[in-house]
Each structure stands twice: as structure tokens, then as C-alpha cells.
């Protein structure tokens, strides 16, 4: 569960990215975060994986206050969260398999567990036959599927996706969405920032619209709508 109480994010240059956010996202939900560029979506997302700390207010991830948590405990908070980016952030010198395995190695999973688990998630994202390819040999959609595999390989309770379809053509975008839906069906919470109106309006889920740093709408099964 993610909770935010009266969260403000003010950057050193004085920009107020978030102004008093109150929100609660329960386990198993699928949530779209929508809003114009510069509305505060990125700050909102970054608070959730503790890339940023709130200037004011409380962010709780599974009950842990991310502002108060000791530095050495932050990794354990992050292990509950998988993150997917618009630009995939795959390591170019590693194969698809190695990119996914890298996430397991980083949390010191035993080697004997790594191979079967990586194969399992690559199967889920439909890339078992491409697992020895380098990112440069994969299409954008395939790269994003590798990134999703990496995000879920350590069994997080949340997947936070920042414009996951932003760099993809419509067909690949839909593949990614079906994949995220499937992951959500298996119990993982999905929080996804997006500009894709068609997706939001077709795969109806909870929509949180942010404008000028405040939540202007929070509606289950809502539409994309905000004034561009």
C-alpha cells in the first residue's frame, strides 16, 4: 500500500512540483497517473520509489515512512517496488537474460535460483527465445518487455511505470499494456504515468489526474480527460 498525506515537493529553485497531495493506493490496484507535462507526475512517481523525499508531508510505502527510514533500510523498501521507464534503461552490454539476472544478483539472490526465475519471467513477457539477444538487437517493444521482466523478477508488490509506452508504436504499446494487466491480475499493484489517451479510455482503471501539483480528479474507471 502507498499512502501520501499532505505531501509537498518544493525543489531548491523554488518550483512547487507537488502541493498538498493526499492519496492512498491499495494492494492490487491499477492506477493511471495523468496530467500535462510539468504537472508533477514525475515528482509524484519519484516519491513512490524514494528517488525523491517529500519536502513536507508523509509518504508511506507498505507502512514505512520513506522520509524517516534509515539509509541502510532504503534498499529493502525499494525491493518491494519495480520501476519501468520510458527509455527502458537496459544495460547495453548485457543480453536480455543478463539484464534481468542483474536485478537478482544486485540483491544477492543465490545463483541457483537466478536462472530458473529469470527464465520464468522471460516466459511471462514472451521473450524466452530472445533471451541471448543484446538490447540493440531487440525492438523497442521487446526492450520494454525485458525492462518489465527486470522490474518484476524480484517479486515486488508494486510496479511503477513512468510513461512505459511513451517510446513505442501503438501495436507495441498495447502489448505492453496487456502485459501490465496480466501482472496486475497476479496481484501486483501497477501505478502508471501516461499521456496515452487511447489506452486510458480503453482499459478503464482508476485515474488520478494531477495539474499544477494538485490532484484534480481521482476516479475509478475514469477517462483520460484533463485540459491539455
Amino acid at each position: 500500500m502507498i499512502e501520501m498525506h499532505d505531501v509537498w515537493k518544493v525543489y531548491p529553485n523554488g518550483v512547487e512540483a507537488l502541493r498538498g497531495i493526499d492519496v492512498r493506493i491499495d494492494q492490487g490496484e491499477f492506477v493511471y497517473i495523468v496530467g500535462p507535462s510539468g504537472a508533477g507526475k514525475s515528482s509524484f512517481i519519484k516519491l513512490m520509489y524514494r528517488e525523491e523525499k517529500p519536502t513536507h508531508g508523509v509518504v508511506l510505502i507498505n507502512g514505512v515512512n520513506v522520509k524517516r527510514v534509515r539509509d541502510w533500510k532504503i534498499p529493502h523498501v525499494r525491493r518491494k517496488i519495480g520501476v519501468v521507464f520510458q527509455d527502458f534503461k537496459l544495460l547495453p552490454h548485457m543480453t536480455a537474460f543478463e539484464n534481468v539476472a542483474f536485478a537478482m544478483e544486485a540483491i544477492e539472490s543465490p545463483r541457483r535460483k537466478i536462472k530458473p526465475r529469470v527464465q520464468e519471467v522471460l516466459e511471462l513477457v514472451g521473450l524466452v527465445d530472445r533471451m541471448h539477444a543484446l538490447p540493440s538487437q531487440l525492438s523497442g517493444g521487446e526492450q520494454q518487455r525485458v525492462a518489465i521482466a527486470r522490474a518484476i523478477v524480484n517479486n515486488p508488490s508494486f510496479v511503477i511505470a513512468d510513461e512505459p509506452t511513451g517510446n513505442l508504436d501503438p501495436e507495441n504499446s498495447w502489448d505492453i499494456m496487456y502485459l501490465l494487466e496480466e501482472i496486475n491480475r497476479r496481484g501486483t499493484t501497477i501505478v502508471m504515468a501516461t499521456h496515452n489517451k487511447e489506452i486510458v479510455n480503453t482499459l478503464r482503471q482508476r485515474v488520478i489526474a494531477i495539474e499544477q501539483g494538485v490532484i484534480v480528479r481521482d476516479e475509478i474507471g475514469g477517462e483520460y480527460g484533463y485540459e491539455d
Binding site: 539509509d71 541502510w72 534498499p75 525491493r79 518491494k80 519495480g82 534503461k89 536485478a103 524480484n154
Partner: peptide
Amino acid sequence: RREIEIQRLVGASNWF
């Protein structure tokens, strides 16, 4: 840099 970023994201311990 990129590897470290990913390691942090997936929750590698600081000492790791």
C-alpha cells in the same frame, strides 16, 4: 553509472 542506477532501483544494498 547506469549499472549503479539500476542496482539502486532494484534495491541493492549500499555496501553491495
